[in-house]
Amino acid sequence: MSAAVPVSVVSDGRADFDFIFGRWSVHNRKLVDGTDPDCTEWVEFGAVSQVEPVLGGLGHVDRMSAEAPPGGEPFEGFTLRQFDPEARVWRIWWASSRRPGHLDAPMEGSWRDGVGQFFCDEILNGRAVRVRFQWVSNSPTSARWEQAFSYDGGATWRTNWIMDFSRLE
């Protein structure tokens, strides 16, 4: 008689973002103008995020409804994250009601030692910029996302947006 062999869990990276499924309260801390390398004024505001898996678990969608930042308007954000099992990378797209009809260039990256790092190159205000998203899942009930820009090809980084997530459900 042979013993039953357990079904192996796929560990290629497709489950790296599973921690984010659910409903979250999001505390935002953002530079007033993240595209201005000289800006030092931060604003803080709240948001609620709902994240659900799609495409058989190889992706998920994230809808965020944000309160009005000081001096700004409320907005809605939408993120699509998709895993490419062959390349073993995640691609992340962002759209916002602040820029109707625009889908940002995809970020690309992966997780290592509990930290997800994702990069892309953009042109903002006529300047070439390297963009980095960094994710850290602190616990089942909290997580942190940070966005940083580099104007020197990644030699130095300047964080311009931080989101601290607290699970609601």
Rank of each mutant, 00 (worst) to 15 (best):
Q50T: 10
M64P: 08
L58Q: 08
H102R: 12
R29G: 08
G114I: 04
P69L: 07
V10H: 03
Q117G: 03
A15L: 14
T79F: 11
L55M: 11
V61Y: 03
P85T: 02
I162Q: 06
V115Y: 04
G34W: 06
E122T: 05
Q147F: 09
E44Q: 14
P74F: 04
G109E: 03
F78M: 14
V115F: 02
L80I: 08
I123C: 12
R158H: 12
M107I: 06
M107A: 15
V129A: 05
N160S: 11
G56H: 07
A148C: 07
A66S: 15
D104R: 12
M64R: 08
A128L: 12
R91F: 08
E44V: 15
S96I: 03
A66H: 09
S65W: 13
G72D: 06
R158G: 10
S139Q: 04
V5M: 11
P106H: 02
V32D: 09
S25Q: 13
Q50L: 12
S142H: 09
F17S: 03
F119R: 08
H102Q: 13
S49F: 01
T79W: 01
R81E: 01
S139A: 14
E73S: 11
G114V: 02
H60M: 10
A105N: 11
G154W: 01
L55G: 12
R81L: 03
L31G: 02
W111G: 00
R91K: 14
R14N: 07
V48M: 08
R127L: 08
P100H: 01
E67A: 04
V61N: 05
R63Q: 11
R130F: 02
D113Q: 15
S97P: 10
R88D: 03
E41R: 15
W145Y: 04
M1Q: 15
I92C: 13
H102F: 15
A87S: 12
P53C: 06
I162P: 05
S11K: 13
D164Q: 14
A3T: 11
G109V: 06
A143F: 10
Y151M: 00
I162A: 12
A87K: 11
L55E: 07
W90N: 00
R132C: 08
S65L: 15
R88M: 08
G114P: 01
Q134W: 02
W145L: 07
M163F: 00
I20Q: 09
E169G: 15
A148S: 10
V43S: 05
G72I: 13
L80D: 00
D164P: 12
R63S: 02
A15W: 07
L80P: 04
A68N: 02
L168G: 01
M163H: 06
S2R: 12
R63K: 09
A105G: 05
A87R: 14
L55P: 07
P106D: 01
F165N: 05
F133W: 08
A68S: 02
